[in-house]
Amino acid sequence: MGESFLEQLRLDSRFLKSDRRLDTELVDKLILQLNRIYPQILTDKEATKFRDLDVPTCIRLAELLSHLQEKGEEACREFYHALHLHVEDVYFSLPTRLRLRESGDPVDPITSPTARYALNDRSPLFYLGCFSVAVGVALLYYYGESREVSGSSSALGLAALGLGRTVREVLIWYAERKIDGK
Rank of each mutant, 00 (worst) to 15 (best):
L94E: 04
L94M: 06
A82P: 04
V87F: 03
K45G: 08
A47S: 15
R60G: 03
L64A: 02
D28Y: 09
L64N: 00
Q33K: 09
H81S: 05
H86D: 05
K45C: 05
E46V: 09
G104M: 09
R51K: 15
E73R: 00
L53C: 09
K49Y: 14
F50C: 01
L94W: 01
G104S: 07
I37S: 14
L34E: 02
T48K: 15
V90R: 01
S66A: 14
E102V: 11
R60A: 04
E70H: 07
E88A: 08
K29F: 09
F79Y: 10
D105S: 13
L65Y: 05
D105F: 05
C58K: 06
A62F: 12
L34T: 03
E73K: 00
Y91A: 15
D54I: 08
T57M: 07
T43E: 08
D52H: 05
T43S: 15
L42S: 05
H86P: 01
N35W: 10
C76G: 05
V87W: 01
V87C: 15
K45T: 14
E63A: 13
G104P: 04
K45I: 11
C76F: 06
I31R: 00
L100F: 00
V87Y: 02
V27M: 11
N35T: 10
E46K: 14
L98F: 06
I59W: 01
P39Y: 03
D89H: 11
V27H: 12
K71T: 07
D105V: 05
P106V: 13
